[in-house]
C-alpha cells in the first residue's frame, strides 16, 4: 500500500460521517417520531445573529414556533441542552448538542407532513440505512469469501457448480427480485424483523460479484510456490487457506466492501421507498423519500430531498475510498 495518504482522507471522512449517525441522539434536538401536527412542512429555520437588542453572538433560530399568532418569532439557540431522552451505549441520555427554549422549535431542515423534525429524522434514518448497508455488505462478503474460497481452492466440479450458481445470481434483476420476494412475505412485521429481512435479502443477493473475484485470487494463490512449499511440509488444506490464501483476498474484499456499502444503502432506500422495507414510524432514508412520490411535495418542499442528498454524499465518499483502495492495490501488485 504505497499511497496510504490517498486512502486516509476518504477513510477519515467516512468514519466521521458514520460517527455523526451513531451520535444521532446527541446531534438531533428532537425525537424523530415526535409529531407537531400544527407545524406541517415548515421551511428550515434560518439563523441570525440579531436578538431583540440588536447584534448578538448567540445565534437565533427563526421561523418555527408552536405559538400560532403573530410574525415568526426568533429564539436563542442554546448548546448542550436537556431535551427528550434517547439511549446510547445502553444508557438513557437527555443532553443534546443544541436546542431552543419552548415554545420555540428549531428545524434546521424543516419539518415533514406531521411536523416531525427532518434533521432529527435524517440522523436516525441514516443510522438505520447505513446499518442496513453495512450489515448486508458483511453478509455478502462472508458468503463471497466462503463460496469463492471453496470454489477457487477445490476447483473441478465444485467450482463449475458454484460459478454457475453465481452467474445465475448475477443475471437476476435483483431490484425486481427483491420487490417480488418482499411482496410475498407478510406486509406487517415489526421494525426489527423488517430490518433483518431487508438486510438478509439484500446481503444474500449481492455475493456473486465479490465471490468471483475472491475465487480468482484464491485460484492464483493456490499455485504460488510458497503455498506448494507449505503443502510439501505437511500443511493441511485448512492451514493453507487460513495462513497463506485467505490473507491474500483481503485487498479484494476491502475494495468490494467500499463498492457494496453504498449500493446496499441505496437498495434499502429503494425498498423502503416502495414501502416494502423499513416501515413507519421508524425513519429510514428510503421511507423519508417515499413522500416525494406526491408531486406537490416534490415541487413545494425542497428540504424533503435531504435524504437523497445524504445518499449521494455516502455514495461519493465510498466511491472515493474504493478508487483509492483499488489504486493502492494495483501499485502494491498483490
Amino acid at each position: 500500500m504505497r499511497d496510504r495518504g490517498s486512502i486516509l482522507v476518504p477513510a477519515v471522512l467516512l468514519v466521521l460521517w458514520h460517527l455523526a449517525f451513531l451520535l444521532a441522539g446527541f446531534l438531533a434536538p428532537y425525537d424523530p417520531a415526535e409529531q407537531q401536527r400544527e407545524l406541517p412542512y415548515i421551511a428550515p429555520s434560518h439563523l441570525q445573529f440579531r436578538g431583540p437588542k440588536g447584534f448578538h453572538l448567540r445565534p437565533y433560530a427563526c421561523g418555527a414556533s408552536t405559538v400560532v399568532d403573530g410574525p415568526a418569532p426568533c429564539y436563542p439557540v442554546h448548546f448542550f441542552v436537556h431535551g427528550c431522552t434517547y439511549s446510547f451505549a445502553g444508557m438513557p441520555w437527555s443532553v443534546h448538542l443544541f436546542g431552543v427554549p419552548s415554545p420555540g422549535r428549531i428545524a434546521i431542515l424543516g419539518t415533514d407532513a406531521y411536523g416531525r423534525d427532518v434533521w432529527s429524522r435524517l440522523l436516525f434514518g441514516g443510522r438505520i440505512s447505513l446499518a442496513a448497508g453495512l450489515l448486508a455488505t458483511l453478509v455478502s462478503l462472508v458468503l463471497a469469501m466462503l463460496i469463492g474460497t471453496i470454489s477457487g481452492f477445490y476447483g473441478k466440479w465444485t467450482d463449475e457448480l458454484l460459478m454457475g450458481g453465481a452467474e445465475l445470481f448475477l443475471v437476476v434483476p435483483w431490484l425486481y427480485f427483491l420487490l417480488v420476494l418482499r411482496a410475498m412475505l407478510p406486509l406487517h412485521l415489526t421494525g426489527a424483523a423488517t430490518f433483518l429481512l431487508v438486510v438478509g435479502v439484500i446481503g444474500s443477493l449481492g455475493w456473486a460479484r465479490p465471490m468471483r473475484l475472491v475465487r480468482g485470487v484464491v485460484l492464483s494463490a493456490r499455485e504460488r510456490n510458497y503455498v506448494l512449499a507449505a503443502r510439501g511440509f505437511g500443511a493441511s488444506d485448512t492451514y493453507l487457506l487460513r495462513r497463506h490464501i485467505a490473507p491474500m483476498t483481503a485487498g479484494v474484499l476491502l475494495t468490494q466492501a467500499a463498492l457494496l456499502v453504498p449500493q446496499f444503502v441505496a437498495a434499502e432506500a429503494a425498498l423502503s421507498f416502495f414501502g416494502l422495507g423499513v416501515s413507519e414510524p421508524v425513519p429510514s432514508w428510503g421511507n423519508m423519500l417515499a413522500v416525494l412520490q406526491q408531486y406537490s411535495v416534490l415541487v413545494s418542499y425542497w428540504w424533503m430531498l435531504a435524504p437523497a442528498i445524504a445518499l449521494v454524499i455516502t455514495s461519493v465518499m465510498y466511491g472515493w475510498l474504493a478508487e483509492a483502495l483499488q489504486r493502492s492495490l494495483k501499485s502494491s501488485s498483490i
Binding site: N225, A229, R231, G232, F233, G234, A235
Partner: peptide
C-alpha cells in the same frame, strides 16, 4: 511430508 520426507525447493 515435512516430517519424514522433506523438500528443499
Amino acid at each position: 511430508r515435512g516430517a519424514e520426507i522433506a523438500i528443499i525447493w
